[in-house]
Nucleic acid binder design. Structure first.
Lengths: 241, 241
DNA sequence: GCGGCTAGTTGAACGTGTTCAAATTCAGCT
DNA sequence: AGCTGAATTTGAACACGTTCAACTAGCCGC
């Protein structure tokens, strides 16, 4: 009756409750066992629903990972905001956010590989590039916009507009490295972050130099070209799903 | 009866013949139907062997893709060598090789997505970074070394040493874009190649400037750091599992 | 109440990748 | 030829993701 229900209480719609229950259960088992080792039957059984019911709410097993993405970002954001408060240089802010990303992701290391596995697949709902309806992507880019906002350095408008996106891509690169990183405590990834952030900081300053304007313009046109192509912009659609 | 037979003649070892037969059959059906739509049963049936026999020679379905990698590179190399003969600038040579890569890959477009899908997975045998036993990677990098060798431009030794590897990574990026490219005739990918090659050419010249030496050194140290971390050695090649 | 409609739920069944113990073939040795 | 152990081949069996036709529950208009 009160706010503490277990399972079957329907606050607004019973379906929402069931969906959330399945999701929580799935993430729990994923954390313990990993993705491939977790069966849909195990999820359904532990959640106390039928196998078919899980598929009523999640079109496939992959769709469950989308929620993991969101979960990861939420934790990352929650950890980043306080860390950004006392830092005002781009280098320090970026460094903190990147390091926190790894801190947060650590518990999921052995299971995170599957993220990129499916993410690189064009047909996958997880594809972070072409799936425009993915809200996590927007939020993740917004975090890097926040990293920039808190600094005082002078960045040309054109570059500043694209930089959050570029930093997000950079983060994906780091995560990809981290997935392959088998060193103790992932210290290689941390070291890579240190070095790349240092280099990026220099590059951004260099690119902000008026002297570099033509090259910068060209590079940014390129980025624009790539970004335009990635979302589903086509009129000639062959297969429909 | 001489040694020229279709199927069951064993020249040296019958096993080799059977393995080759299964491989050819698999690639054929992959081309027609795509990867996911091709079942191991279909491969075995068309090859005239039992299902279990296919698994005797290929530990999993994924292992069949490794051969596809090799096939793709062989065709790419065969097409690139004559194209390089009449070109002596870095820009023209790189442009030709990159365009040919797409030309060659075209027939496999709808099925190529699975390459990157599994390639990004650390555990996968297809992972082009960490799988040191993959000879295709070496050959592919060697092709880009050849692209460089035919030019007369003056590139610092440190950069020149890493450039083939970096261009190979660049090629992987282009292929990743191409996989997602749904434009007619993949014209967007070709345009992207035009623009990126132009930019790369400029960047390489810029990086070769003595003025850029410190930044270049730092960037190359970074590349070295990344390459070291990936379980792959420079020139030492041993079959260690 | 009753009929019907939609959302939610079920479990059996299917297709597929993979495994495995057993059967078969083969090459070398005595 | 006969034996032996290894290489090869087989097909049944298993586990899992996914689909689907049927069933139930809640609810609205009458």
């Amino acid at each position: 009756m009160t706010a503490m229900q277990k399972k079957k209480a329907a606050k607004t719609l019973k379906g929402d409750q069931t969906k959330a229950l399945i999701l929580e259960t799935a993430l729990e088992i994923f954390r313990e066992r990993g993705y491939e080792e977790t069966t849909m039957r195990a999820i359904a059984e532990k959640a106390g629903v039928s196998l078919g019911n899980a598929y009523y709410y999640f079109r496939s097993k992959e769709y469950l990972i989308q929620a993991f993405y969101q979960r990861l970002h939420d934790e990352h954001l929650a950890a980043s905001l306080p860390a950004l408060e006392d830092k005002d240089t781009l280098k320090a802010r970026l460094l903190a956010v990147m390091r926190l990303r790894i801190d947060i992701s650590k518990p999921y290391h052995h299971f995170a590989g599957v993220l990129f596995k499916t993410a690189a697949h064009p047909e996958s709902p997880l594809n972070p590039f072409s799936d425009e309806s993915d809200p996590v992507r927007e939020q993740s880019i917004a975090l890097f916009a926040k990293v920039l906002e808190g600094t005082k350095i002078r960045i040309p408008k054109d570059l500043k507009a694209e930089l959050p996106y570029l930093l997000w891509v950079y983060q994906m690169g780091i995560v990809l490295f981290w997935i392959h990183d088998r060193s103790r405590g992932h210290r290689r990834t941390y070291r890579l972050i240190d070095h790349t952030v240092d280099l990026l900081d220099k590059l951004i300053h260099l690119a902000s130099n008026p002297f570099m304007r033509p090259l910068r313009k060209q590079a940014l046109r390129l980025v624009e070209e790539i970004r335009e192509a990635l979302p589903d912009d086509d009129d000639d659609e062959k297969d429909e799903r």
